[in-house]
Deep mutational scan, measured.
Amino acid sequence: GLTEEQKQEIREAFDLFDTDGSGTIDAKELKVAMRALGFEPKKEEIKKMISEIDKDGSGTIDFEEFLTMMTA
């Protein structure tokens, strides 16, 4: 499992990506986040990433899903 410290770091990354503070990361926010990390993702790639992570089919990534992605 994760230490509380690791969870906190992932939470901070999540909050950075969640620019509108909605508690979820949408495609637009993910794209901005990827760019910040030096990637140039295409729209299809973003969609694919979200569909792989987005277990509940909401079209957005919540913290639990993000946590799973970061620790996979």
Rank of each mutant, 00 (worst) to 15 (best):
D26N: 10
D18F: 06
S58G: 06
K43T: 15
V32W: 13
G38S: 02
D26E: 09
E29D: 15
T68A: 14
D54Q: 06
K43S: 14
F14L: 01
E5H: 12
E64Q: 10
A72D: 12
E12M: 14
D62P: 03
M70T: 02
V32P: 11
I61D: 00
D62V: 04
D20Y: 04
V32E: 15
E9S: 13
R11T: 01
M69S: 04
G1Y: 07
I53Y: 15
P41E: 04
E9I: 14
M49D: 02
M69E: 02
G21E: 05
R35P: 01
K42T: 15
A33W: 05
T71W: 07
P41D: 07
D15P: 01
E65C: 11
M69V: 10
I46A: 03
I61K: 00
D26H: 06
I53E: 03
M69T: 03
S22D: 10
T71Q: 12
E45N: 08
F17N: 02
T68V: 07
F39V: 09
A36I: 12
T19N: 06
M49N: 03
E29Y: 12
L2C: 11
R11N: 01
F66N: 00
S22Q: 02
A13H: 06
D20Q: 06
I10G: 01
G21C: 11
F63N: 00
D56G: 06
I25P: 00
K7A: 10
K28R: 07
F66G: 00
R11I: 03
E64Y: 08
L30M: 06
K28P: 04
L67V: 07
I10T: 04
R35E: 15
I53C: 11
P41H: 11
K7T: 11
Q8N: 09
Q6K: 13
F63A: 01
T3K: 04
I61T: 00
S51Y: 04
G57A: 07
Q6M: 11
M70H: 02
A27C: 10
E4T: 10
R11E: 01
I53G: 05
E9M: 11
D20C: 06
D56Q: 07
D18Y: 03
I61L: 08
G57W: 09
T68Q: 15
E44G: 14
T24H: 08
T19Y: 14
E65M: 14
E4L: 08
E52I: 14
M34D: 01
D54V: 10
K55M: 09
F17Y: 10
T24G: 07
M49W: 05
K48A: 12
D15R: 08
S22K: 08
K55R: 08
D20A: 03
G57C: 12
D18V: 03
E4K: 11
I61N: 00
T71G: 08
L16C: 14
D18R: 04
M70E: 02
F17D: 01
E12P: 01
I25C: 03
A72L: 14
A13G: 02
M34T: 01
M49P: 02
E44F: 02
T3G: 03
T19W: 10
M70Y: 07
I46F: 09
K7H: 10
L37E: 02
A13P: 00
T71K: 08
G59H: 06
D18A: 04
F17I: 14
K42N: 15
K28Y: 09
P41A: 10
T60M: 08
E52Q: 12
L30K: 00
F14E: 00
D20L: 04
K7Q: 06
E12W: 15
D54R: 06
L2F: 10
E9Y: 09
A36D: 05
D20N: 09
E65V: 08
T3A: 05
S22C: 05
E44Q: 09
S58I: 04
K7L: 13
L16M: 13
S22L: 03
A72V: 09
L37R: 03
T68S: 12
T68E: 12
F63M: 02
E64G: 06
T3V: 02
T68L: 13
T60V: 11
K47Q: 14
A33F: 12
T3S: 13
T71R: 06
T71P: 02
F14K: 00
F63S: 00
V32D: 15
S51W: 05
L37C: 15
S58C: 06
K28D: 15
E65T: 15
I25T: 00
Q8K: 09
V32M: 14
K47P: 04
M34F: 05
E9F: 10
K43F: 14
D18C: 06
R11V: 02
L30Y: 01
I10D: 00
K47M: 14
L16Y: 14
A27M: 09
Q6A: 07
D56V: 07
T60Y: 08
E44A: 07
S58K: 12
T60L: 09
I50W: 06
K31A: 13
G1W: 12
I25M: 05
E40F: 11
D54H: 09
S58M: 07
D56I: 07
D20R: 04
L2R: 04
T60H: 07
K7I: 14
K28Q: 11
G1P: 08
M70D: 00
D54A: 10
A33E: 00
E9T: 14
E45R: 08
A27W: 12
E64D: 11
E5G: 08
I61F: 12
E52W: 15
D62H: 07
K28M: 12
E45I: 13
D15L: 10
D56P: 04
G23F: 02
D20P: 01
T68Y: 10
K28V: 08
G38N: 04
E29P: 00
F63G: 00
F17E: 00
T68K: 12
E9A: 13
A36T: 07
T71N: 05
K48G: 05
Q6C: 14
F17K: 00
T3E: 02
E12F: 09
G21V: 02
K47Y: 06
M70R: 01
T19Q: 08
K48C: 15
S22H: 03
Q6Y: 12
D15T: 09
A33L: 15
S51Q: 12
E9D: 09
K31P: 05
L2K: 04
D62Q: 05
P41T: 12
E5Y: 08
A72R: 12
E44R: 05
